[in-house]
């Protein structure tokens, strides 16, 4: 049977179709996401366990995360046990479980970075277990109208506002590098 949805922008996990509102995945995603990030007043990057496990041509995902954060002086919330990787790299990430940070992000008076006034208006996800991230994004979609979400993973995440399409590692690397470059 033919698939109705195009493979690149259909939910990565085939059955994960939440409803009528699904993420945008534009052709020029890296440029657009970089523009959104630059425009955001208080962006936040949340990373999960894959930042310690995924390598793209010998470069760990955690190093991409740090590069992204440094470009925009953006705080990183290190979920699961990923804090250790940031400490080894002397990056001051904040350790918090995914559900703990998502729970707080529903609150427009919450900010991870005390230097910047709440709320976080843009939240980027990277390297979190697909379905776990999907559920966290769902919470933000429904209950955090004051912020937008972008996922930088290689999977199309329907519950985000903006998502990369489903891509193989080579293309993912290009997308991440283009995004970092566009951040300035």
């Amino acid at each position: 049977m033919a698939s109705i949805l195009p493979s690149r922008t259909s939910p990565y996990e085939t059955g994960n179709i939440p409803g009528p509102q699904m993420a945008l995945s534009p052709d020029k995603a890296p440029t657009i996401y970089a523009a959104l990030t630059k425009r955001a007043k208080n962006p936040l990057l949340i990373v999960g366990k894959y930042v310690l496990e995924f390598e793209l041509d010998g470069k760990l995902l955690i190093d991409y995360a740090i590069e992204i954060a440094r470009k925009r002086d953006m705080p990183i919330v290190a979920t699961a046990h990923t804090l250790k990787g940031f400490l080894e790299r002397n990056f001051p990430a904040v350790s918090m479980g995914l559900v703990d940070i998502v729970n707080r992000l529903q609150d427009p008076n919450f900010t991870v970075d005390p230097r910047k006034p709440p709320p976080h208006d843009l939240v980027l996800f990277l390297g979190i277990t697909y379905q776990f991230a999907s559920q966290g994004l769902s919470t933000l979609k429904h209950f955090a109208p004051h912020l937008k979400t972008i996922t930088l993973c290689k999977w199309y995440h329907p519950n985000a506002d903006w998502s990369f399409p489903n891509v193989k590692n080579e293309e993912w690397k290009q997308l991440l590098e283009a995004f970092i470059k566009a951040l300035g």
């Binding site: 939440p18 009528p20 729970n103 559920q135 769902s138 919470t139």
Partner: peptide, 9 residues
């Protein structure tokens, strides 16, 4: 209660 909707419908 913290909710993570599994389906929007």
């Amino acid at each position: 209660p913290f909710y993570a909707p599994f389906c929007d419908l």
